[in-house]
Design a protein around this nucleic acid. Structure first.
Length: 534
RNA sequence: GGUGAUGUAGCUCAGUUGGUCAGAGCGGCGGACUCAUAACCCGCAGGUCGGUGGUUCAAAUCCACCCAUCACCA
């Protein structure tokens, strides 16, 4: 295996300091190459590296110097990135070694036996491949319209700061060289830490999206990120105490509260009818005037600035309601009409803010839109108030996050750290992983079509000591009558899943691409329902 | 080792071109209110703006060096 400089340690050839990396000595500052080290050792295995000759393929990056410099200007890359790139241009672009000797993963280079493409040559090609796949699945989207050099569509890459290099030098050069268009720009962001530290499986801070979504509302996380994220490459921290406080204070306490404290009056006193004018149109104008600023912030990826602007307006709205005191006005016969005006004002301020926040908290915005009984919220809708129309009864849009929810999520995410050996890039699973799947022999007692479902059959399975109802998408391939009585293999410990037609309590194993080509797994004669498959 | 970035109140962060820039939100403390998911409103914050020098009439803001953290080094 080829060892990069920092994977070789040994004694410095100049100062004779032991345990130094293969590129420089920390003690005397000398720089050298790994082959100059005295007694070199592999950091990975501890053995002595040996010299081998190998033929390599190179990408002539040096040829792209001018074109890359030109592209970097048009892409208007963030200052963080350009200052980083300066370094490489100053040193002069070197040709890029794009081959690796076996054993390696990925794609073998055509015409060779044991040479493979370096991962960063083929990885970004996956962007094109997956987009082409998308085009094939969707009528009317033409790959060439997006990726030929004369394309007028915009293409952006959102990446992490660790791979700026590959996306701002190699990738544009590869695209140029292939006769394809280059990205409009590349946006790089920092890393996410959790509670100030790198994510850790053992601490329970390596949280999967699924685990998060099982415990908490995605809108909350989206809001929290937006509130902290800017266009730079700085890392951002997901601090759970801060997260809970911020979401509860901003989203629930301030924002949703505006609607909550106004909608009740409108429903109870005015049959859900909004007034036909605003109480304070100058105040509302402050909300509409913010539209341009907020849109600009979003476009420039200044999410945290957009959020700050929006929440400052939310404070204004709450302050307004507090000054007007509709709960006192409502007790004075002469002021009851004004309550409708004040609450209409409050609800419209809330409405504008929610329209602005739609890109950040889409499903919360959608629930809010339903309150106003509107069918769509284009950005421009925030500019004119909604008047003289009925609103729906207010339902809580978002509830406070409890610390316990977060703790539960962390608990569910805890697992021992992966062994520190090889990166486990391969797709193998351990025997323990396999054992988790409880496979059982099942007898199909009953099979019947499901009304309203084209593909499903409802199966009643006999698992020995219990009966299960399972919905299987095999209708096109099997006649229900022919299934009854036969043996199959079922997953017995699959989480029950609610479907439109009922709850499916397991899964029957089958093979094939789908449609009419589905083949149920069979069990040889003699097996009894309920037997474990292993 | 080289390069880039970051380091501002207990916490999370704003601070454009040097001079009301020493701030906001949360937490904390005090008060007011009760419409609202104990939410909202008002008041209170003694942080040498990582450290040390330097430039300047004036620096968190410019320069040098140092320390710490993150990333990259084809």
């Amino acid at each position: 295996m080829f060892l990069p400089d920092r994977f070789v340690k040994g004694t410095c050839p100049r100062s004779k300091t032991e345990d130094q990396y293969g590129d420089a000595c920390e003690n005397c500052g000398a720089t050298y190459t790994p082959n100059e080290l005295i007694d070199p050792l592999s950091v990975l295995s501890g053995s002595t590296p040996i010299w081998r000759e190998s033929e390599h393929y190179f990408f002539k990056l040096s040829e792209f110097d001018n074109r890359l410099r030109a592209w970097i200007k048009t892409a208007e890359l963030h200052q963080n990135i350009t200052s980083k790139l300066e370094e490489w241009f100053e040193a002069g672009l070197q040709d890029w070694d794009i081959s690796r000797d076996a054993p390696y993963f990925g794609f073998r280079i055509p015409g060779t036996k044991d040479k493979y493409f370096y991962v960063w040559l083929d990885a970004p090609v996956g962007y094109l491949a997956s987009f082409l796949h998308f085009c094939n699945l969707h009528e009317g989207i033409n790959f060439d319209e997006y990726w030929t050099p004369d394309s007028d569509t915009e293409a952006y890459h959102f990446i992490g700061k660790d791979i700026v290099y590959f996306h701002t030098l190699f990738w544009p050069a590869v695209l140029e060289g292939s006769g394809l268009r280059t990205p409009t720009s590349v946006f790089a962001h920092g890393f996410l830490t959790v509670n100030g530290k790198k994510m850790s499986k053992s601490r329970g801070t390596f949280i999967k999206a699924r685990t998060y979504a099982d415990n908490l509302d995605p809108n909350c996380l989206r809001y929290y990120y937006a509130a902290k994220l800017g266009p730079s490459m700085e890392d951002i921290d997901l601090n759970f105490d801060d997260f809970v406080a911020r979401v509860n204070a901003d989203l629930v306490g301030k924002l949703v509260n505006i609607a909550s404290r106004c909608a009740g009056f409108i429903s109870k006193r005015f049959d859900g009818r909004l007034a036909d004018s605003l109480d304070d149109s100058a105040l509302f104008a402050r909300f509409t005037d913010a539209s341009g600023d907020i849109a600009r912030h979003f476009e420039h990826r200044e999410y945290s600035k957009a959020i700050r602007r929006i929440m400052a307006l939310a404070d204004d709205a709450n302050r307004y309601i507090d000054e007007k005191k509709p709960w006192i006005m409502v007790k004075n016969d002469g002021q009851v009409e004004d309550v409708q005006l004040v609450c209409t004002q409050g609800l419209n301020m809330f409405r504008s803010l929610m329209i602005y926040l739609t890109p950040v908290i889409p499903s919360l915005a959608e629930k809010s839109r339903e309150l106003f009984d509107e069918s769509a919220w284009p950005w421009s809708a925030a500019e004119s108030p909604l008047l003289a129309t009925n609103i729906q009864k207010f339902k809580p849009l978002l509830t406070r996050i409890e610390q316990a929810q977060v703790e539960k999520m962390i608990e569910q995410s805890k697992e021992p750290d992966a062994p520190e050996k090889a990166p486990d890039d391969n797709d193998t699973i351990s025997i323990d992983d396999f054992i988790k799947v409880d496979l059982r022999v099942a007898r199909i007692e009953k099979a019947e079509p499901v009304e309203g479902a084209d593909k499903l059959l409802q199966l009643t399975l006999d698992l020995g000591d219990e009966k299960r109802t399972v919905f299987a998408g095999i209708k096109a391939a099997y006649d229900p009558a022919a299934l009854e009585g036969r043996l199959a293999v079922a997953v017995a410990n699959l989480q029950p899943r609610k479907m439109r037609f009922g709850t499916s309590e397991g899964m029957v194993l089958a093979s094939g691409p789908g449609g009419e080509d589905i083949f149920l797994l069979s069990v040889d004669d003699g097996a009894k329902p309920g037997m474990r498959v292993k």
